[in-house]
Design a protein around this nucleic acid. Structure first.
Length: 207
DNA sequence: TAGGCCATCTGGTCCT
DNA sequence: AGGACCAGATGGCCTA
């Protein structure tokens, strides 16, 4: 990607990033040390030799560059914080999702898909519970409604697998193909977890 | 070593 | 004008 500051005369003050260290944030250091506040950048980079030539115009150009650079650095900082907050939200989301036995951290896309399907599963649970209000709660029925085989063991057993006749109730649009879901999630390959149980069967969202 | 995931930078666009 | 949001590009790290 083109660096907007790459046209800066290196004999003057090289504000352009080192191409090799550009992407590493913390250690991404421009050739001319620039902190996020950019305070004192001009002073640190300007030299008496440069002050001599094309004084007025050069200073304007430099000022413009510094202003641009300042904005860019601030924008980068904001973007970094924005992404950090997004990651924090994902972490929070992970904490309310059932954990995998091997404690493997879900990737971002896995977290979103899992959450999506988990919500749908819980909604189905509520729906079935409402339907059977007059009867005592039946775990087997719930599991069946969630797509697990009728004789599925309790969550925690890896024997719980998708049934080919899952609930016909309305589900999120991306889940409409659940009834035709494969017996094993490996067929989708969305999540390469060896041990999947209970609600984890909902991880392989059909997108 | 290839591929997946991730963090970061960057410029464009939209919104306030 | 400046901030938020977004998507593309890039490079590092890790794993099969």
């Amino acid at each position: 990607m083109e660096n907007i500051y790459s046209d800066i005369d290196s004999s003057n003050c090289d504000y352009s990033y080192d191409e090799d260290s550009r992407s590493s944030t913390q250690d991404a250091s421009p050739a001319c040390s620039v902190d996020s506040s950019l305070s004192g950048m001009q002073e640190a980079c300007s030299e008496p030799q440069q002050k001599k030539r094309r004084r007025g115009r050069a200073r304007n150009e430099t000022t413009v560059r510094v202003v641009k650079k300042n904005r860019r650095v601030k924008a980068n900082d904001r973007e970094r914080n924005r992404m950090h907050s997004l990651n924090d939200a994902l972490d929070t989301l992970r904490t309310v999702l059932p954990a995998f036995p091997d404690d493997t951290k879900l990737t971002k896309i896995e977290t979103l898909r899992f959450a999506h399907n988990y919500i749908w599963a819980l909604s189905e649970t509520i729906r079935i519970a409402d339907q059977t209000k007059t009867k005592p709660m039946d775990t087997t029925l719930l599991l069946s409604s969630l797509g697990c085989v009728a004789d599925a063991p309790s969550p925690g057993s890896e024997a719980c697998s998708w049934s080919s006749s899952a609930s016909s109730s309305s589900s999120p649009s991306s889940c409409t193909s659940y009834p035709s879901s494969p017996a094993t999630m490996d067929d989708y390959g969305y999540l390469q977890k060896d041990v999947v149980y209970g609600f984890h069967n909902f991880v392989p969202s059909v997108y």
